[in-house]
Design a protein around this nucleic acid. Structure first.
Length: 480
RNA sequence: UCCUUCUUAGCUCAGUUGGUUAGAGCACCUGACUGUUAAUCAGGGGGUCCUUGGUUCAAGUCCAAGAGAGGGAGCCA
């Protein structure tokens, strides 16, 4: 007999047919004559209701059915006599495939804190919440590939181990095959990296962008979607040491094309979630409502989760330059009433997250794309504007999350790029391969990076990034 | 890394001014119940009060250091 998934089972109206269901027990409710087992197999949020008549199923077997146990149930699909589900399975036979001793199984049939579930990340998949999050995560991964594929982009696997030390995106994790207790040394007593596996000092990548640019200079439209690693000691709800980043890179495209692509992509992904994850989003929305009931009135969100998602779809992102943003902030009531911890001083300083949040959440009340930042606060590869002061950068800011996308048009002029690299002490010798794109057939191009987990925060309404990736890697924590 | 709050039963938490044998709800176990919806009712078991050191006649409670966690900031995606 073929196993039926619970997503199909719960919609079935083939009453009287015999079915085989397998899954894990969520709760058991029993009385003298009958036991009700709520069983889940991850195919959807819904549980199957298994009805075990004590005259049919041995008491010995019922005893072994606890929360967390895995079961193989053969039974008859019937119309449910109770409320809450349209059908149920009247068990003919139940096999307990794997018991879960309730004295030791950590997941109880009750609400757990997110902190507790993080410490039990190996079992949190079995909760409604993490089932929903991980199904949404899968759908978003799939939608990213579909969005780019439909537009003629090629997916490029950029390297995870790199010898480049000039990506400029943060501290890196070293990769070595040396016995760290006794590494080969040079005459001067330094570690001799030429004897290491790659004959070079190597690191885990902090961005696939530079390699992505190489591919875009031939394939025109490419994107990467891979893991990235930052050894920053960042202890926040928005940072991970290991996260997944989507980085499109497009030839013959300027910063306006770049912004259009970013906005189209975000809207496509949000739309895909609304259309394909309706049940899980409804559950996540309810979770958020319950959580907000605990908060004081003025801290509660004005919109539900799905209203927030639809709002992003229905409204154009506000596009303003850094210079315009500074003017708005300088003349804002928040600045005049001294509400900012860091008051806006002069043109040229980077915005604090309180300023970004003010623009997005108070002033425009929608996603904002900030462009044309002072060149001093941005990376060496960004396209220098004719004004000599700014670069063609663009950051997409989202409510609650802050910077969800960072990108720019790239400097395609060899001389300008070299000058900027010298000013910023970027070692040009080791970047010869990157500079070659500007020596041979250089072209206007642009790209950006989307932090996948930050998108997940927005779509699921979760507030800690450690809850939207199955196994979070953060300072002092690489368990599981 | 900085600021701040927290760490008491399996989980979530209460514990007064330092004072006898550290409590509750849920979970678990036992029993009752003819169909439940995180069932209900009755009973029961369960503690390295994060660790180390100190103050005190007396420390879950006060002090110091350390560890871990949450929130905020910086860095960014």
């Amino acid at each position: 007999m073929k196993r039926i998934k619970i997503s199909d089972l719960t919609n079935s109206e083939e009453f009287g047919s015999e079915v085989l269901v397998m899954g894990w027990v969520r709760t058991v409710r029993d009385s003298k004559n009958v036991a009700f087992i709520a069983m889940n197999d991850g195919s959807c949020l819904r549980n199957a209701q298994i009805v075990a008549d004590m005259t049919v199923i041995d008491a010995e077997i019922i005893d072994k059915i606890n929360s967390g146990a895995s079961l193989r149930v053969v039974g008859k699909l019937v119309e449910s006599m109770g409320k809450g589900q349209k059908n149920e399975v009247q068990a003919i036979s139940i096999e307990v495939l794997g018991e879960a001793n309730p004295d030791h199984y950590p997941m109880q049939p009750k609400r757990h804190s997110l902190e507790f579930l993080r410490e039990n990340a190996h079992l949190r998949f079995r909760t409604n919440l993490f089932g929903a999050i991980n199904r949404v995560r899968h759908n978003m991964i799939f939608a990213v590939h579909r969005f780019f594929n439909d537009r003629g982009f090629y997916n490029v696997h950029t390297p995870i181990i790199t010898a480049s030390d000039a990506e400029g995106a943060g501290e890196m994790f070293h990769v070595t095959a040396f016995d760290m207790k006794n590494p080969p040394k040079t005459k001067d007593g330094d570690i001799d990296w030429s004897k290491d596996f790659f004959g070079h000092e190597t690191n885990l990548t902090v961005s696939g962008q530079l390699e992505g640019e190489l591919a875009a200079m031939a394939l025109s439209q490419i994107y990467t979607f891979g893991p990235t690693f930052r050894a920053e000691n960042s202890n926040t709800s928005r940072h991970l040491a290991e996260f997944w980043m989507i980085e499109p890179e497009v030839a013959f495209a300027d910063n306006h094309d770049n912004m259009n692509l970013a906005e189209d992509m975000l809207k496509y992904l949000v739309d895909y979630a609304l259309k394909n994850c309706a049940e899980d989003l409804e559950f996540l929305e309810q979770r958020l409502l319950n959580e907000e009931k605990e908060k004081p009135q003025n801290e509660r969100s004005e919109m539900t989760l799905r209203e927030k998602l639809r709002f992003v779809l229905d409204n154009d992102f506000e596009r303003i330059t850094y210079t315009e943003a500074i003017d708005i902030l300088k003349n804002s009531p928040a600045q005049k009433k001294k509400k900012f911890v860091y008051p806006i001083q002069d043109w040229g300083t980077d915005l604090q997250s309180e300023h970004e949040r003010y623009l997005v959440e108070k002033h425009f009340k929608k996603p904002v794309i900030l462009t044309d930042y002072p060149k001093e606060i941005k990376a060496f590869y960004m396209k220098q504007n004719p004004d000599g002061k700014t670069v063609a950068a663009m950051d997409v800011l989202f409510p609650q999350i802050g910077e969800i996308i960072g990108g720019s048009q790239r400097e395609e002029n060899y001389d300008k790029l070299m000058t900027r690299m010298k000013e910023m002490n970027i070692p040009a010798e080791s970047m010869w391969w990157y500079l070659d794109t500007r020596r041979f057939g250089s072209a206007v191009h642009a790209g950006f990076g989307l932090g996948f987990e930050r998108l997940m925060l927005f779509v699921t309404g979760m507030t800690n990034i450690r809850d939207v990736i199955p196994f979070p890697r953060t300072p002092k924590n690489a368990a599981f």
